[in-house]
Every structure is written in C-alpha cells, then in structure tokens.
C-alpha cells in the first residue's frame, strides 16, 4: 500500500529503475527532464532490496532513444529501463553499450585530437570479465569509469 503511494503507475512511457541515488540527477540532466512538459515522476532514496537505497524516474509518453540509452548505460550500468505501454512492460531494454559508442562523451586525455578540433568522439567498448573499459579510437587511451564526461548537446 505504502509503495503505491510513493510512486504512481505509468500508463505509457519509460521507467528507469535501480538508479544509484547519486546518479538520479545526472540522468535528469542527460535526458533534459528539467524542461520536460509532461507527467514526470522522480523518486530518490527509496528502499530497495537489491541496493539498499535507489532512485527511480518515470517519464510518461516518451520512449528513450538508443543514444540516450547508451548514455545511461555509461553513468548507471546496473540500472534497468522498461518501456511501458498501457500499464504493461512491453520492452526490457538491456543496458548494453554495443561495440562502439559515438560522440556521447569526451575523451579524458587532454592531448587527444578530439578535445582540440571539431571531431566526433569514438570509443571502442572492451568488456572483459564483466569490467567495461572504453578505449578512444583516436588517441587509444582508456577512459576510466569516474572520468566519464558526457557531451552536452
């Protein structure tokens, strides 16, 4: 009963669940939800069996693009994204990064050509033993998880 009161059900749209509490507002900013004109629920510090405390974002009447999904995968790789139609989950979107990510983040190497000239960034995703590493296609340096700096477009 109490749970239902906290977060209302969504008819159509996207639910991003199991967000680490410190990443909720990062995702709000990635998806530009500050200027979203439709029904929007942002919950944070909710109890979670899996992670102790968590955040959740429900966006009505919006399906996330692949680019938005990969941005979320970069900052919150363990979050879950569900697409809802008529109160039912119609798609559980895997937060897979694919083999390459294009132009969603900056290279952390200050001497990389992409930080000096108008060149879209490209990173090769290396997934070894569950650890994801991102290698710049140009300067070949690896970007660490806490160095990820998304592009603002």
């Amino acid at each position: 009963m109490e749970k239902e009161l906290k977060v209302a059900a969504l008819k159509n749209g996207t639910v991003i669940d199991h967000i680490p509490t410190e990443k909720v507002f990062k995702i709000v900013s990635i998806l530009r939800l500050k200027v979203y004109g439709q029904l929007l629920t942002i919950g944070n510090n909710l109890d979670s069996k899996r992670m102790g405390r968590k955040g959740i974002i429900k966006i009505s009447n919006r399906i996330l693009s692949d680019e938005e999904t990969s941005k979320i995968a970069l900052v919150a790789p363990n979050a879950s994204i569900n697409i809802i139609r008529d109160y039912k989950v119609v798609e559980k979107r895997a937060l897979l990064l694919g083999d390459e990510i294009h132009d969603v983040m900056h290279c952390a190497n200050p001497m990389c050509i992409t930080n000096h000239q108008p060149i879209p960034t490209k990173f090769v995703v290396i997934n070894e033993d569950g650890i994801v590493r991102l290698k710049c296609k140009y300067c070949t340096k690896e970007v660490l998880q806490d160095e990820i700096n998304l592009k603002k477009k």
């Binding site: 001497m111 050509i113 710049c136 140009y138």
Partner: peptide, 26 residues
C-alpha cells in the same frame, strides 16, 4: 602531429594513404 590521435583521424578522412610519423605520445 603533437596531438594524440591526429594520424588516425587524418587516415579516416583522407582518400589517399596516410603514414603516421608520430602523433603526440601515441
């Protein structure tokens, strides 16, 4: 080129072959 990755970028956009003679510390 003094910047890392400059040669890879050049090779990507160039219609003729590019030989890297050193790009930064790369």
């Amino acid at each position: 080129h003094p910047l890392d990755g400059a040669a890879r970028y050049a090779a990507e956009i160039s219609p003729i072959p590019v030989v890297n003679a050193g790009d930064g510390s790369n």
